[in-house]
């Protein structure tokens, strides 16, 4: 039998058993090329550090305790922001999704504030709250809220009209219809909204940390930029990417699958 085919067969079986392998293997050639380009010094070392230097930087910063502390700061801010964002976004989305009056009164305002965008708020927030946690949390909450609201509204509206009717005719009081029918029906979309919102929130956090600049991975990168140290910038980027990748692929995506796809409700692109 064709050895290439055989190899592909092994690869396919392995990745079927451990999907993590499929997510990691493609990075091997990328790192190899990176290493090659860096060691041939195609670009100046100061601008384009190699993998070995970045690993050394990682060990160094971890040993000093800077990296874990900054990571904790960033993740903490993101979680805090996401929590507040959901606490505001989900009830608002349900209200707007259920009531035509609420929709008419608030939808244009929601669209307008969404358009301003989180980062444009930074200057005035700095005036209001100064350089601190409040400013950063505000920015992240602001980013997370809109996708959550949009998708919750979509979710509430996508619940087939006969489902709440069925619940009512089975004797459910109105608030139970909300918790037993509307909320679960909208859940897949809410999760999608959270996933999108965190994607934006993550970027907003980095920007806020760069501009507000007290601690966190974004600050680490920008501080390194000021010192002209490319190694730490690249390290910061990889940490950010890996962390988000892990959160998205191993936490958010499975939740999305477990709700939407399992119930056959998903209308995702």
């Amino acid at each position: 039998m064709n050895p290439a085919l055989q190899a592909w067969g092994y690869y396919a079986r392995w990745t079927a058993r451990w999907p993590g392998v499929a997510a990691l293997v493609p990075f091997i050639p990328v790192v190899a090329i990176w290493w090659l380009v860096a060691s041939l010094e195609v670009f100046p070392r100061a601008f384009f550090p190699g993998p070995a230097e970045v690993v050394r930087g990682f060990v160094d910063l971890t040993y000093k305790g800077i990296l874990p502390a900054y990571l904790e700061d960033s993740v903490g801010r993101l979680l805090l922001g996401a929590g507040f964002g959901m606490a505001i976004g989900i009830p608002l989305g349900i209200l707007v999704g259920l009531s035509q009056t609420a929709y008419r009164a608030t939808w244009p305002i929601i669209l307008f504030f969404q358009a301003i965008g989180d980062i444009a708020w930074l200057p005035i927030l700095l005036i209001w709250f100064g350089f601190g946690l409040t400013t950063m949390t505000f920015v992240i909450v602001y980013t997370v809220v809109f996708p959550v609201v949009f998708n919750t509204v979509l979710g509430v509206r996508s619940v087939p009209r006969d489902l709440p009717r069925a619940a009512l005719s089975l004797g459910a009081p109105r608030w139970r219809v909300l918790t037993e029918v509307i909320l679960p029906g909208a859940l897949p979309n809410i999760v999608t909204g959270l996933r999108n919102g965190l994607g934006y929130g993550w970027r907003a956090l980095i920007a806020a940390e760069i501009i507000v600049g007290t601690s966190g991975i974004g600050f680490l990168m920008f501080d390194a930029r000021r010192a002209g140290s490319a190694t730490e910038i690249v390290l910061g980027m990889i940490v950010l990417g890996l962390l988000w990748y892990a959160v998205d692929a191993w936490i958010l995506a499975p939740i999305e699958r477990a709700t939407g796809q399992r119930w056959g409700l998903v209308t995702r692109t």
């Binding site: 039998m1 085919l5 592909w8 067969g9 396919a12 079986r13 079927a16």
Partner: peptide
């Protein structure tokens, strides 16, 4: 045809 999952 070759079934990569069964290997047969």
């Amino acid at each position: 045809y070759f079934d990569p999952y069964a290997g047969t």
